[in-house]
Design a protein around this nucleic acid. Structure first.
Lengths: 249, 249
DNA sequence: CTTATTTATTGATATTTATCAAAAAATATT
DNA sequence: AATATTTTTTGATAAATATCAATAAATAAG
């Protein structure tokens, strides 16, 4: 039987699940793809982008965007998984993991600070298109529907971060790890069995915990038969319980 | 002599400041005002807004925006201080405190989820203008410069949240409290002596700590002659040291 | 002005989580 | 295949922080 430890529950040291109708705040809101935006462009606008486009392939581990450098490009990832993270003075925190058909660098479109706010590195081979920011802005000026679609993507990211901020403040370490596993399953891989392109250290940076703590909780989940682990391959065996740990932890 | 306690510093239990050139990540990046956006509009566009505008006054404590309700308005705060916060299932976290001449609700402009992501309440009397979202979007569609200015505001908020996320993950409790005090001083009140419209509980929600812990650290800062406290009135006596605590804590 | 109620403060304590250290396992290198 | 190196895991421990409880102070209500 699995319980969730709660702070200072006097009557019983462990908290047993009860059915309540709380708002369930998870990092795991579904991500949206960004490819529809291009369909809003006219031939001439597409041509502007085409003439200011560079197609590049990145290998695993290579840096697509480096925090602090001048943001001269808007990047569209056609294929591949990448991690977006902020580098602090002591720690790193992975904001999100992005799949195919996503823009990178939109949050640096119009800002006083002309540098990228985060670093992006490829977690596997990535095929990307670099658009010159000036040209991209030109198209943005010409086409209001396109511009609004871009606002939509930016706002979608923002609402993800609101949730993430709350999760980091509110959830305990088990909740964070459960949430991360569900996030990987639901939104990155879309299935219950997957192999992560992340080290344990990176998992910790994603969960916002120390590596040792993250590992310990993963092992705990394994002992409780919630997941099955083998190196980087994960198998979710009791999704309902993971959801409850994420919700109540 | 003031030291900053560091985790497990073996050689010496307390960490003494050393001059390094680290990136200093603070929540306290300067906020921008949003009134310039209106200057980009034509007469006819201003008229559309004017015809879809309601002017309202809110008293202290009243709710301007409620998380989860349908986002039918874009709000422009002409005058007054308000707090923006996310309500979790167990905790609240104050995202930011906004002054005069700021838009609220921009992050709900274009989203699948048509509800507000956060709650906003007045910390003092507020004079606001409610714009019908449909009309606001109509103007956005007509005027690209306006649209881009709005993107700028949204992105500015985003970069604030990136920093905030990092601060919450990286800083210890003293660093968080020091950072909060500096934020209030630099960007909300613009001076070293100010009276906060926040309770201790709200300060804790702003710092992301428990109320008791927040109070204890405030008292500690007072004992160390960094600040002077009297109820809700604050006086900063050693800004340099606060900055270092925020930086290294 | 007195009493009730809320808010702020302090102290003691428990829990969570990070850190350190060392071993085991996995991967890379020769 | 043997060795070196890195990553992962485990155990022990310390520090940070939250919680509980009780008191003090401030504010509101009668």
């Amino acid at each position: 039987m699995i319980f969730i430890k709660k702070y200072y529950d006097k009557s019983q040291q462990y908290f047993i699940f009860t059915e309540t109708t709380r708002d369930y705040m998870s990092n795991c809101i579904k991500d949206i793809t960004h490819n529809e935006a291009f369909e809003l462009l006219t031939e001439s606008e597409l041509l502007i982008l085409k003439n200011n486009k560079t197609s590049i392939k990145y290998d695993k581990g290579e840096v697509l965007i480096k925090q602090g450098t001048l943001s001269n490009s808007i990047i569209f990832v056609k294929k591949g998984i990448s991690k977006i993270y902020i580098e602090g003075s002591q720690k790193k925190i992975i904001l999100t993991i992005k799949r195919d058909n996503n823009f990178l660098g939109l949050s640096s479109l119009y800002t006083e600070d002309k540098t990228y706010q985060y670093t992006v590195t490829a977690l596997e081979k990535c095929k990307v298109e670099l658009y010159d920011k000036t040209a991209f802005k030109e198209v943005l000026k010409k086409n209001v529907a396109f511009s609004n679609e871009i606002i939509k993507y930016i706002n979608h990211n923002t609402s993800r971060f609101y949730k993430r901020l709350l999760c980091i403040t509110e959830k305990n370490s088990r909740g964070k790890v459960a949430d991360m596993i569900l996030c990987l399953s639901n939104h990155i891989f879309g299935c219950l069995e997957f192999t992560i392109p992340l080290s344990r250290q990176e998992l910790a940076e994603f969960a916002g915990l120390s590596m040792e703590n993250t590992i310990r909780i993963l092992k705990e989940f394994e002992a409780d038969k919630l997941i099955k682990l083998k190196g980087k391959s994960f198998k979710i065996k009791n999704k309902t319980m993971l959801e409850r740990i994420s919700e109540f932890g």
